[in-house]
Design a protein around this nucleic acid. Structure first.
Lengths: 261, 261
DNA sequence: CAAATAGTGTCTATAAGACACTATTTC
DNA sequence: GAAATAGTGTCTTATAGACACTATTTG
């Protein structure tokens, strides 16, 4: 028997090896279930704020806690394909631009789920357009939370009648979200893909509002310096030449910008 | 039956739910096998070059191709713990500093392994000290390759009698290595953890040699400008006040630098 | 016209990089 | 002293950010 294995592994052709491999009944290693969790960001045009989609869990474990959107990965798809599928199912939005979804990483602590060995590959999604949230089967509620910071600088999520902190989240979603914010912040000057939440064209004011959620250096930035640094000199943003239509507000018309390809 | 499930999921306490959960015979989702692949970098003091550890596969699939060090993840450990264990097994070096190993990401294309559904969580390791390579059971050979570039700028790996390119590697290890180089390059100015391959203390010349493998902007950098930018002004490196011992070479004695904590 | 808002111009401090010059060692 | 190597000083240029000023719109 060992001879046969050695023959196919080292003497036969790769095609022969693979054909033989499928016929064998392998004693396999233990395997984890694989899920994806999706950190979905979008920009709410009503109040011009960056928001994060969370669901309130209906069932144990972590009943009544808020959690990221997630689901199992199918054997025929990659983690990214699963995350894209879940995004389309949950929001109705089909992400087309590859830069609108980043893999953040695999979260693999064997105790991260109290039920069984379940790993999760986290993806951050920069959704556009903004759509209303609706709860699926496993959720009591689904809603958009504005991304904000408390007095101590910790990330908090605000909705009309509820404020939640990272410690209020289910599973290891605190870690996942922290890793996501760290990654987005570190990439901001090079690949500010988070701006995809603003759609194809956007104003410098909205861009600053979004960037400020990740790096407070933008807080005291004038639109003037922003445009100079990120549009005139840098290869990141560009001026479309168009202006905002129907602002319904006083003020000089805003230039529409977009990400360079 | 459905009533019982609903009761435990939504009415019972979480402890009761989990106790009940373990008694159930769940029809599970298909699960992938989970491996780690390890991109192990080290600095060879003999020729003062950054090197990458690859093994030559003894058996199908990808027989005779070079590949990253890898192995299965145990249900009791995280992917990082598995990668640390594999590193210790393969090299004898026990990594202690958390910054010496980064998770690069999960590689989950369902066809990445021709045999079955196997995902891999890639980790980059900045090994120190440098140790000789030795082939394990599944390898015909294990060796250190100097990290270099060909005329077109593509990454190539050099050893005394063999040059291999990314397309010569097994599985999707080309993608894994490309993602690793990209990530290290992007983080260079903020977290140059790759310099851990140099040990606790190192010279500016060696640091430049390592950094140059990831960003060619260091190619025409004088040690003078390097020290000014990365040691005097920046919070990344610092001068230890000591000098290199026994250089056995002409030239002004080299200052020893180290990464700030 | 006042208020609101955004974009431009200008100045200053800082930093990066080029490069000549100095320092220290081996042979 | 010549060759090899590393570190320092200085100059130029580019850029970030502060901030005053200008532009455009609503009411």
């Amino acid at each position: 028997m060992l001879k046969e294995k050695t023959y196919y592994e080292t003497q036969a052709s790769e095609a022969e090896y693979l054909a033989w491999y499928k016929t064998q009944d392998w004693q396999t290693y233990d395997k984890p279930a694989m899920t994806v969790d999706n950190i979905i960001f979008a920009f709410d045009p009503t109040d011009r704020q960056l928001k994060l989609l969370l669901i309130e869990r209906k069932a144990h474990p972590f009943k009544d806690k808020f959690a990221l959107i997630g689901g199992f990965v199918d054997p025929s798809e990659s983690a990214k394909q699963a995350a894209l599928r879940e995004t389309a199912e949950e929001t109705g939005v089909k992400i087309t631009d590859d830069n609108q979804m980043w893999q953040i990483g695999a979260f693999t602590d064997p105790n991260r789920d109290p039920r069984q060995w379940i790993i999760s590959v986290a993806h951050a999604t920069f959704l556009s357009p903004f759509v209303a949230a609706h709860a699926g089967d496993d959720a009591k509620d689904a809603r958009w939370f504005a991304v904000s910071k408390d007095e101590t600088g910790a990330i908090v999520f605000l909705s009309s009648d509820l404020t939640i902190g990272l410690d209020d989240l289910a599973f290891d979603h605190k870690d996942i979200i922290l890793a996501t914010f760290k990654r987005i912040k570190e990439s901001l000057d090079v690949t500010p893909d988070i701006l995809h939440v603003l759609g194809d064209e956007f104003t410098s004011t909205d861009a600053l509002a979004v960037l400020n959620c990740f790096d407070s250096k933008f807080e005291h930035y004038s639109t003037g310096n922003f445009v100079k640094t990120y549009v005139k000199n840098n290869p990141i943003l560009m001026d479309t030449g168009r202006f905002e239509e129907n602002p319904n507000k006083p003020g000089r018309p805003k230039k529409m910008l977009r990400l360079r390809k």
